[in-house]
Each structure stands twice: as C-alpha cells, then as structure tokens.
Design a protein around this nucleic acid. Structure first.
Lengths: 300, 300
DNA sequence: CCATGTGGATACCGAATACGTATTAATAGC
DNA sequence: GCTATTAATACGTATTCGGTATCCACATGG
C-alpha cells in the first residue's frame, strides 16, 4: 500500500466519482481506477460500489475512509513536527545532574531556558559522574551537570562556572570567623570531607586548597554526600568547606561563613557529546553561556 | 511522500545502519539511501546524522519516528477495520423509526440483533415516513421501521409483521366487552383516530376495517399521534383502536381490550434501499426475518 | 604513513510501475 | 433503441525503482 492510493481513495470517496476525483488530483481517470483496484486487491476489501452514476463507499469503505484520513493527517502532522524539531522548537532534552550544582544553579539555568523554549520538554536524571558518562555514550542523556569530570573520547567537558566556597560550622561553634583567620578553625575542629567516591572530586579539591594555604587539618570523616556531611557538622563532628550554593538552603544545626578568599575555586562543569549536533542541546549550551555572562558578578 | 519511504525510514532508525536496514527489508543498500534522501528533501528535514560507524537519528528524526510508526500502525489498523467491516462485524447502522412499532417490536428486534452483532453501533432517528424516505435516498439512514409506506423507486418496502389490535377505552367506561360485541361500543362512544398526517396511515386502516365490519362510528377527534389520542381517551372524549404493542405500556386513565377478530390486521414494515448491499443492513434484515419466524406465534 | 574495513553515496542499467490517450463496457434516462 | 454518463481496459510512453558496481569519507591498525 502506498500513500498515493490513500490520496486517490479519499478523493474518490469525497467526490463519489472517479472522474471528478481525477480532475481534483490533476491526473486522468484511468490511474484512479487502477490504484483503487490495487488498494482493494491488497486489502481484500471492496471499497466502492460502482454504479452508472458515480461510486459510493461500501460500509467497509466508510470504515476505512476514517483511517485513511487519519493516516494522511498524521503525515502532515509528522512533517510539521519534524520541521519544528529541526528548528529546535519542540523535542526533549534528557539532563543528568549530580551533587550541589542541582541545589541552585541548575534550577536557575533550566528555569530561564524553559522560559525561552516552552516547546521543549526537560527530563532530569540523578546520575553519578560515571553513570552520566555512560548515559551520554548510549544517548540516554544529552547533557550532564556536575564537577570534576574526567576527559573521555567524544565527550566534551565545559567549565561553565566558578562558585565561591563557604565554611560550614556547627551552629554552636562560637568562634568569630573572618577572611583572615578562617584557616585557624581547623586547629580547633576537624575537617569533614565529601563525597567519598567518584574521584577526582570535591574532597580532593578541598585538600588541595588547604594544602596550598598551608593548613593541615585533621580529617574526622569522609561523608558519602553533602547531606551526610552536613549532619555530621550539625552533631558537632567537625566543619566542612562547601560550595556557596549550599548556603542558600536552610540546614538544621549548621552555620555558614562565606569565604571571600575562596570566591572562585569551586568549578561547575557540563558534559556532552562533541558529536551531538542536536539543536536542543546547542540551544541549552548557548543559554548556559548567556547565563554565565549575565550573572558573572552575581553571587551564587 | 510514500509509505515505502516511511517503512525504510523506520527500519534504518531501528538498525541505525543503512545496510542492515536494507538486509532486513530484503533490498540492497542504495535504494535505502535514495528513498531516505527523497524523504528528507521533501520534508526539508535532516532525519539522520550519517557517521562513519552508522547513522543515528537527529532530534527531528526522533520526533518524526514517532509519527512514522503511528502512520504505519494506522495503516495496519485501517486494513483490519476495513476487512472487519466487509465481514459485517463492525460498523454503524442508522435506523429510522416512527410510531407504535418503536414501543415494543423495535426494541425487541434490536436487542436481539445487537446481542448477535456486538461490534455494530446502532443509531436511532425518529423520522416521519417522508423523512425516512428522504434519509434513505441520501444515505443518512440504512433502514426505516414504520407502517403504510408508499412505494418508490429503489426503495424496498418489506412487510415484516402483522400485529393484532386492541380497543382502547376510558378506564371508567364500564361496558363489558368480548370479541362478539366489540362493534357495539361505537354506538355508545365516538371514535378517536390517529395519526392525522402521512397518508395512507393507520387511521385509514381503522376506517377500512370498521367499514368492512359494517360499523359507521362517529369520529370525535383525529389526533396528531397516539399519545394525544390516548389522552383524549383518558379524558373521555372517545375510544380508539390501537396496535397491540401499545397495550404493553401503562397509560393513565385507559383500559385495553385485545380483539381476537383483529389479531392480524396491523402491518409493520421496514423500508430500505434495494441497491444497498451493506452487509450490516443485510444482517439486520436477516435477523428480522429470523425474529419473524421464531415469534410467529408470540403475542406482541 | 599506508593498508584495510566499514558505511553511505553515486552512476548506470534493466525492470517494474505509473500515467496518458484512446477505446470499450455497462447502465440509466429519454 | 439512442444517448449520456461513468468506470474499466488496452497500449504506448515516461517515470520511478531496485540491482550491480564503484566511489568517497572516515576510522582503525600495523
């Protein structure tokens, strides 16, 4: 069966006349006869009752007419949807995220992006760095948000933001902190690191920074994730250094002190396939870059 | 666009490889290339991203794939529906009805028929005889139920049932009636006829019967329809002779006396187009004939 | 660096299919 | 019976399709 036959069929059904249908379709009458016949043969269904003054649909023809119209309409819709998708107006974006960027930055970026592209559906997947990279390779996600990605073939890691850091202390830790004496807290309280896995990671970064600053803290605990770490802080196990976005939220039993000295040390990256030419992904990346510029001086 | 192109497109999308898709479709690889290219040109959409190790869908291709699958599936559904309709298993029947046959006979017949043909949808239209005939000619209905149709070109009137008749008297009309003395009521109470229009009609039939029986009643009223007539009876204006099926229902203020002498005088007919070869109609007519035989002795 | 392999595109040819013109067949109305 | 209308058929031509062979691009491995 071919669409040509359906087009002819619908035309004849509408005109109830082979010749008039042929005129409407700008062909001669015999092709109509032949294509309809072919369609009937292939379906093993008689679609028209031919009479001397026209042709009318059989009940089978009436039933099939609905489907034929549906099919032709679906073709039109499909073409339009394909074109809209090509222009990047509709479609889906699968987004992987992990860790603290999802606390503030990702919602901000995606809210902006969604507003600019209402036809796009965004799906979010909480995936570890490793899972993100696998999902990228199999095409399950288009982009990942996180930190400290390893380089890999065909995957492009783009550093999109430098976040500041904050000291996170037990609420009842009374010492006054300023940007000159923040190192000294670690002589009084041990350090809690996170996360425990997926190296290189934020924990390595913190240790590197402290080493650079000449601090050699006692490590009380390496927590699985930031929530576990914050709970350790809350119960007084130690202190943490966290990305600023964490301070935007309310956490029981902890207080934050933003560190001007570390206002630019916490990288946030995106990762995507170099070979992915999807306009949706490109739009999102472009939107992220725009966001970067417009909020370069905004405290995160 | 042709369905061939959609079939090729779906195959390539599934295999993510032109050559493998060709194998699956039992054709060589070049035709795939050409048809896909044609499809892309016609849609002005790039459907695949060709790489050195296969081809993958663009986002536009992904969007269109859904539609292409829908279309091909709809084709399959359409063929099946067409075949089922040809076998008379599915479809619609538009039925015109008028007057008293709809009180009992029509529901009985249609209940039976619907039970035998659950896939058929039955639509009922209350139409006068004239309206039924017009609707038959324009194809709006397939069959009409009623009485006293006029013959007309291409319309076939089939007499399917002879109903008995009953005398309908005011509830407080105390005279004892039996089948020997029923004529005599019209010397005590006038006759009410119905309907007023659409001749020849039931009123003409009643007058003919009474004339045959040698009765010359006073006609008190010619009511538009049976309900109006029954109300006249209830308020005591006169008496009626009605088809037996009317007696099956409860009517305020009237009583019925079935007349054995007129147990076969009230014809019920169907009307349909001679040239209508729809299997649904044929099935219904067949079902009616069957109903006729099986209930030949059943009191209606 | 070249050899090799894979996947898709192109060129060309023969076959299948579609269309157009002319004609025929069937039927209804006069 | 004649005519008009409508669908079907016959046949020649044009288009389209698919097959074979080949080419091109690119990645991989020595």
């Amino acid at each position: 069966m071919e669409l040509r036959q359906l087009r002819y069929f619908v035309a004849v059904a509408e005109e109830r006349n082979f010749g008039l249908a042929a005129q409407k379709l700008n062909v001669s009458q015999p092709p109509i006869t032949r294509q309809i016949k072919k369609l009937e043969d292939e379906m093993s269904v008689v679609l028209f009752k031919r009479t001397s003054k026209g042709s009318e649909l059989t009940s089978a023809g009436q039933a099939f007419l609905e489907d034929a119209r549906k099919i032709l309409n679906q073709v039109k819709i499909g073409v339009e949807r394909g074109q809209a998708a090509q222009r990047g107006e509709i479609g889906t974006l699968e987004i992987g995220y992990f860790g603290t960027p999802s606390y503030l930055l990702l919602p901000k970026i995606l809210k902006l992006f969604k507003g600019e592209n209402p036809g796009l559906e965004l799906y979010l997947h909480r995936l570890s760095k490793k899972e993100q990279m696998d999902a990228l390779k199999t095409g399950q996600i288009h982009i990942g948000f996180g930190r400290y990605y390893n380089q890999e073939h065909d995957l492009c890691v783009e550093h999109i933001f430098n976040e500041g850091m904050a000291l996170c202390l037990p609420a009842d830790f009374s010492m006054e902190i300023d940007n000159s004496n923040w190192h000294s807290v670690f002589s009084q309280i041990p350090l809690i690191l996170f996360p425990a896995s997926g190296r290189p990671n934020f924990a390595d970064e913190i240790l590197a920074i402290l080493k650079r600053e000449g601090v050699d803290p006692e490590v009380a605990n390496v927590s699985e994730d930031i929530r576990a770490g914050l709970m350790q802080v809350a119960i007084g196990t130690g202190a943490m250094i966290v990305p600023n976005s964490v301070t935007e939220m309310r956490w029981f039993g902890v207080r934050f002190v933003k560190l001007a000295a570390l206002s630019d040390d916490c990288p946030i990256s995106i990762i995507y396939r170099k070979s992915d030419t999807s306009p949706h992904l490109r739009k999102l990346i472009h939107s992220i870059q725009h966001f970067q510029e417009s909020s370069a001086k905004i405290e995160i």
